Simulated scan of single mutants.
Amino acid sequence: MDQESAGRADETRDRWQRKDWWGVVLDAPDVDELAQFYSKLRGWPIWKQDENDAALDLGEGVAYLAIQRNPDYVRPVWPAQPGSQQMMLHLDFEVTDLEGETARAVALGAELPDHQPQDDVRVLLDPAGHPFCLYT
């Protein structure tokens, strides 16, 4: 079976039975705080969680967002500054109401930095300091 056929076969199986899951894992000093933040921000249920790890179920497909405890985690600096911890990645979320969703994210615990590079994008920092973007 070629790769394309295998991919179509995977799509027809129950997603929980699939073996091609992938995800993004964020380090944080407090797993629960960050898991709760993204669960509330995106409406994703927490699929499993303990004091060291959490995984959020994005609801469809085979992608997930996970958080792992790292007691030595160092917050990145935004905007980037030479000699400071750099962000390793950032998450992008499309929204229909940029100002409303920005205000909601801040109410949930995000920070809104002064530096905003684009009018149709808001760079925010989650409770652990990871930059993420809301955009229209």
Rank of each mutant, 00 (worst) to 15 (best):
Q3R: 14
D53I: 04
Y64V: 00
P76V: 04
A35G: 02
L41K: 02
A63Q: 01
G59P: 05
F132Q: 13
M88F: 01
T12H: 00
P76C: 00
D126H: 03
H90T: 03
G61S: 13
H130N: 10
T102S: 13
A107G: 08
R42Q: 07
H130G: 02
L58V: 12
V25Q: 07
A54Y: 09
R15W: 03
T12S: 00
S84G: 03
D20P: 01
I46S: 08
L58Y: 06
Y64C: 05
A107W: 10
P71G: 11
L112P: 08
A107F: 13
Y38H: 11
Y135L: 15
P131N: 03
S84D: 12
F93G: 11
N70A: 10
E60L: 12
E94D: 11
K40W: 08
M87R: 09
A9H: 00
A110W: 12
A63Y: 01
V95M: 07
P71I: 14
G59T: 06
W16V: 09
P45C: 07
W78L: 09
V121H: 13
P113R: 15
G129I: 12
M1R: 14
E60R: 15
Q81W: 04
P29V: 15
H130P: 05
Q86Y: 12
C133W: 11
P117S: 13
L26F: 13
L89R: 06
L108D: 10
A80H: 08
Q49L: 12
Q3N: 06
L34D: 05
G61P: 11
E4C: 03
P29C: 14
F132K: 12
E60H: 15
D119G: 15
D14H: 02
P45Q: 05
P79Y: 09
G23W: 06
A54S: 09
Q3F: 03
A9W: 00
E99D: 14
E51Y: 14
P113F: 15
Q116P: 01
Y64G: 02
R122P: 07
L34G: 04
D53F: 09
G83D: 11
Y64L: 06
G61C: 05
E94V: 05
K48L: 08
G7A: 12
G100K: 05
L34I: 04
D20S: 02
R42N: 10
F132W: 07
L124I: 08
G129K: 15
K19Q: 14
E33S: 11
W22M: 12
Q81D: 04
A103W: 04
G83R: 10
K48F: 09
T96L: 13
H130E: 05
A66W: 03
K40R: 14
T96H: 14
D27R: 03
E51T: 13
W22Y: 14
Y64W: 08
W47C: 10
G7Y: 00
V121C: 02
A128L: 01
D10M: 09
R122C: 02
V25K: 03
Q49E: 07
T12L: 00
D114G: 15
V74C: 02
E101A: 09
D20H: 00
